[in-house]
């Protein structure tokens, strides 16, 4: 019975992640429309987009190789795998020990590696440009994200996501300076990793500002649907990863149905708030020039380093 419960929770979480990710992306888009004084298409618009893309035919360039066709599946698959190890609705995930927080970041990096390769596969200038820029941003983000992780795992005495979340959830609600610094760094990193303003603009098709969009410019049909969906799941997961590390209160510890339901309800509220915060940042800032990103990501790295220093000096 116990084992069945665990499998059920695992499957439930995967379904929640896959199904709710477009809604979260839609929520952020909707808020963004409102704050910019536009009419929005509603929370459900990403679902309609994906559904539309799935029924369309695939058009591929003549010289595309298997890497181009394989990448969408890998992007989607890796996102789903990560979705089943991050404690989102419950802290009793039997798959969670298979990947700690460093592995989670590395799985995302694998997906990005293939995405960049797919960008270079066709041999157009846009694809190469996107790949080059994406890898540049990634190489600057990686040290910052690692330092943020480092702070959290020093405080939680583990790199396992479950243990970090449990350690914080069971502790009292105190303001720890190290965690605050790490949290700020994490927010900056999430903005960079998920390609949002001021690092990248998800809704642009202007050649000079594209990063992510430039890489996937040649995709169409179900391939594009998978990539878009994968990117939404990735966005969703980065936010829930932040929640699990910094605000884990309310994630179900036991596996009875009531707790899980409360946990899902709390998750929706937290996501709603997190989305609002991101939209405020995004609307308040303008897209940065590519080579000013070093300052932005340098700031993230500095914050995370301050977190580590604060941990050793103050705690």
């Amino acid at each position: 019975m116990k084992a069945l419960n665990l499998i059920f929770i695992e499957i439930l979480q995967a379904i929640v992640v896959i199904a709710l990710a477009p809604a979260f992306a839609g929520w952020v888009d909707m808020l963004k429309c409102w704050t910019q004084g536009r009419t929005s298409a509603g929370v459900m618009q990403p679902y309609r987009n994906i559904a539309k893309l799935f029924v369309k035919d695939v058009v591929i360039a003549d010289n595309a190789s298997w890497i181009f066709r394989f990448t969408p599946y890998l992007v989607f698959g890796s996102a789903v795998v990560v979705g089943s190890v991050v404690p989102i609705i419950s802290m009793n995930l039997f798959l969670a020990p298979s990947a700690d927080i460093i592995v989670v970041i590395a799985i995302f990096a694998t997906a990005r590696f293939f995405m960049a390769l797919a960008g270079m596969d066709i041999g157009t200038a846009f694809g190469g440009m996107g790949a080059s820029r994406e890898m540049m941003v990634a190489s600057l983000t990686e040290p910052a994200i690692l330092m943020a992780i480092f702070t959290v795992s020093l405080a939680g005495r583990s790199t396992s996501l479950l243990h970090i979340a449990r350690a914080f959830a069971s502790g009292a609600l105190v303001l720890r300076p190290s965690i605050v610094f790490a949290g700020i760094a994490f927010v900056l990193v999430v903005i960079a990793e998920t390609g949002r303003i001021p690092v990248d603009n998800p809704s642009t098709h202007l050649e000079l500002t594209m990063i992510h969009e430039a890489m996937i410019l040649e995709y169409s049909g179900r391939h594009l649907a998978l990539i878009e969906w994968g990117a939404m799941i990735r966005f969703f997961l980065f936010v829930t990863l932040g929640i699990a590390c910094f605000l884990p209160w309310g994630i179900a510890v036991t596996d009875n149905a009531g707790d899980i339901a409360t946990s899902i309800f709390l998750m929706v509220i937290k996501l709603g708030v997190a989305g609002t915060v991101l939209v405020v940042i995004e609307t308040g800032l303008a897209k940065m020039r590519l080579f000013r990103l070093t300052e932005f990501l340098g700031a993230a790295f500095l914050m995370a380093t301050l977190g580590v220093i604060a941990f050793f000096i103050l705690e």
């Binding site: 010289n63 190789s65 890497i67 990096a109 990005r112 590696f113 960049a116 390769l117 960008g119 270079m120 596969d121 066709i122 041999g123 190469g128 790949a131 080059s132 890898m135 540049m136 990634a138 190489s139 600057l140 983000t141 990686e142 040290p143 910052a144 994200i145 690692l146 330092m147 480092f150 790295f301 380093t305 580590v308």
Partner: peptide
């Protein structure tokens, strides 16, 4: 810990470098 950050930087730069290597040699035209 700063050493760990440098190691992370190394890993990410290596990934960038091999996207370049594979992309330029094997992909495109």
């Amino acid at each position: 810990p700063l050493g760990a950050a440098l190691l992370a930087l190394t890993g990410a730069l290596a990934a960038a470098c091999f996207v370049k290597v594979f992309g330029v040699i094997f992909l495109g035209n």
